[in-house]
Nucleic acid binder design. Structure first.
Lengths: 342, 342
DNA sequence: GTGCTGAGTGGTAACGGTTACAGTTTTGTA
DNA sequence: TACAAAACTGTAACCGTTACCACTCAGCAC
């Protein structure tokens, strides 16, 4: 457990000054022969620059803070996976936090990121920490909101799917199949995803001239098993829906589970479309029609913004990037039962 | 974007010395009135100690490095989720790396962790970096291997399930149902999980006095779609198995997908048990019998070892912790078809 | 020969915490 | 009231790196 070599050790051994070693590390102007000598010495001593010392000296770090709600949700897990990948490809590392949708935990994460002088932060905000995010941005830490956005924070970059359009597309698909009683389960209306998806749903319904039964719109929390309850309530209605769109990724499992337990047959009695494709949507019976979010693109753009701003390459005003979700039709959506009233 | 307050700013404003402020931060002995004054000043200035400065002075940080193979695998995603949770509860943060089973990426991650002077590292090693891990341990960074272990590295803590026992249990379950031709799909034999699970399988079979057909044991990579190929090969045998255990969590999806596409009926033609429970095993038809890994326990013990050693609370020799996986019977396992030769 | 340029190099003061040690005040006891 | 012990506070030296400035020394134009 010998103490690791420092830049001074390298300088002494290579018979140059520390300044030269530092320049070797940072692409400064160094004579090729000197550089080779220094590199060889670093190799020999197993020298690894201490990030802490560098960070102390410089303003910020190349660390990206990743603040997600919950890695148990496959959507966020795969997003994290890609973010780590893209960050690594650009020489950045990822400090991971989860909020479990709790603003207090989110606030804690924000404080920690300030203390560690993160260079950029990629986050799905809970919505409960406007002040915290403002502070972070004020300190010069770039913030990229992914998946969700917060209207009160116009200074953050945003990367998300076109939520309204994607909900509209899913709804239109059911309308085209002949459905009129369509239910929509969304996230809380306090989140942009919840609001925008409901907006898209309404837009498609209105355009088709179909009256919207407000009881068929369920804005439910991300946490807990509310998806099951919502499905239960919908099925218990005097006139249950013939089509259901679950636009709350965190509640898809719970909702599908409830449907499996009920006597309802999919798609014969009820057509189902869920938001976000994942490894198991194709394995259940019947395979589910889904709106697939381009996770790779979300991660790529988020990291590019985060790294770009850290490097100072991007100085313009905040960007709002939208990528389109893709509808994948499988077997869970079909025309409504013929005996249903139109 | 004013530059953030430093400890000296706080000291000046609160009319005390920097030493006092430092002691306030570190639970040193400070008069209550002084302490209150300092805390108030910190609050007022929005002071946040810079982790980099602290880390520079001290030997190591409280950061835990988490090196996993792939967050797209729900097992690792949920493990990461719990690790972040447990670490946060203990005041530690998590720096996340993924290796995608690539030793080069793993080596890169190890270097990065040295540079950032991580306090502890929790990892599922690929097996290709014995030297790298040895170096890390030599530098005084505690290493906890989770899920897998490496025999050549006796100085690392290990937290894993009893792989041999769990495979034995799963096999015994099929034997008890009357199966004799049982196939086993494991991970590569270069990993401890692969080896140990095959060992458990053999043990149960031998004890039951059943001859082992080596063609029914498939040790396949974690990456790619080899699970599908393995299932295809098993089904194409002159005498296909009546029972199948998939002991390679990363290939379960691919294997199940292949079975769904085949004319084989589960459990009528083939009983299926897969390793690791996850949100969708209950949703597919039929719901899958699984060996459930206690992810919470794996995460809890890993973090406790990591944090404990960082704090110097644990100084004894490396620990090898085993937790038991739990067999959950659902509908994918049943007695073999009666017309099958015994 | 002088002055100028520019590449290569060296010395050293930050950066913002912690901490050993010395100094000062408060408290306890005879 | 005196004096020792305990409790608290202040100073300054680190930790490892980079930024900044100063310096040397060719090469070149005048």
């Amino acid at each position: 457990m010998r103490k690791p070599a420092t830049i001074r050790d390298v300088a002494r051994e290579a018979e140059v000054s520390v300044a030269v070693v530092s320049r070797v590390l940072n692409d400064g102007t160094v004579a090729p022969s000197t550089k080779a000598k220094v590199v060889a010495t670093m190799e020999r001593l197993g020298y690894q620059p201490r990030a802490a010392a560098r960070e102390l000296q410089q303003r910020a770090t190349t660390t990206i803070g990743l603040v997600l709600t919950d890695l148990a949700n496959p959507f966020f897990a795969r997003l994290a996976n890609r973010v780590v990948w893209e960050a690594r490809a650009r020489g950045s590392h990822v400090l991971l936090f989860t909020t479990q949708e709790d603003p207090h935990l989110e606030a804690e994460s924000i404080e920690a990121l300030v203390g560690r002088s993160a260079g950029s932060v990629i986050a799905t905000p809970t919505g409960g920490n406007v002040g915290g995010w403002t502070r972070l941005i004020g300190l010069g830490i770039n913030v990229v909101f992914v998946d969700r956005e917060i209207d009160e924070l116009p200074d953050a970059d945003v990367v998300a799917i076109s939520n309204d359009l994607s909900a509209e597309t899913a709804t239109q698909h059911l309308l085209d199949l002949g459905h009129r009683r369509i239910a929509f389960i969304s996230g809380p209306l306090s989140t942009s995803t919840g609001r925008d998806r409901v907006t898209g749903f309404r837009k498609a319904m209105t355009r088709a001239g179909v009256d919207i039964d407000e009881r068929l719109i369920c804005a439910i929390p991300f946490r807990g098993d509310s998806g099951s309850d919502a499905v239960g309530a919908l099925l218990a209605l005097p006139a249950p829906p013939t089509g259901l769109i679950v636009g709350n990724t965190a509640q898809v499992r719970s909702a599908v589970h409830r449907l499996k337990q009920s006597p309802i047959a999919v798609p014969d009695d009820l057509s189902l479309i869920v938001f976000d494709d994942n490894p198991w949507t194709e394995l259940v019976s019947p395979p589910l029609s889904v709106m697939r979010q381009p996770i790779d693109m979300l991660a790529l753009h988020s990291v590019e913004l985060a790294v770009g701003r850290m490097r100072g390459a991007l100085t313009e005003s905040p960007r709002h990037l939208r990528v389109n979700a893709e509808f994948v039709q499988r077997s869970s959506s079909a025309p409504p039962p013929s005996d249903t009233s139109r």
